[in-house]
């Protein structure tokens, strides 16, 4: 079991490294919109043919009309491809210049077939 523990620690170390290094290495942050209207930002750590994606250092952005945008940390997240509406590349300068505490908006509507 100790060998497994090694993996866990390395995983955690890699994640920490990612968080620290991603702004330095210009690793692109992405914004993912889900079918239920949720908005998640994170670093694209991987994806596959079915557009399943792995996001590291991810946060959910919760929008509301009478409160500032709340960012809820989610950490390492696997999002199933069929739940995804859109994946957008974030312009980090523009994102940094937007003060989320000033933003008020309705949550995005869910997809309705």
């Amino acid at each position: 079991m100790s060998s497994l523990q090694g993996y866990v620690d390395r995983e955690r170390l890699m994640e920490t490294l990612y968080v620290i290094l991603s702004p330095v290495l210009y690793i692109d942050r992405v914004l993912v919109i889900l079918q239920d209207g949720r908005v998640i930002v994170g670093t694209l750590a991987g994806y596959d043919q079915k557009s399943n994606v792995v996001l590291s250092d991810s946060k959910e952005r919760v929008y509301s009309t009478d409160e500032p945008v709340e960012e809820i940390p989610l950490g390492l997240y696997l999002v199933k491809g069929d739940q995804i509406v859109l994946i957008g590349e974030i312009d980090s300068e523009k994102d940094a210049s937007t003060d989320l505490s000033d933003v008020r908006a309705e949550p995005l509507p869910a997809i309705r077939y």
């Binding site: 914004l31 919109i33 908005v39 557009s51 952005r61 995804i84 994946i87 957008g88 980090s92 523009k94």
Partner: peptide, 12 residues
């Protein structure tokens, strides 16, 4: 305003 900082995207 959710996508104000997004310049290009992939749509399912």
């Amino acid at each position: 305003p959710h996508m104000i900082a997004v310049k290009n995207c992939f749509i399912r």
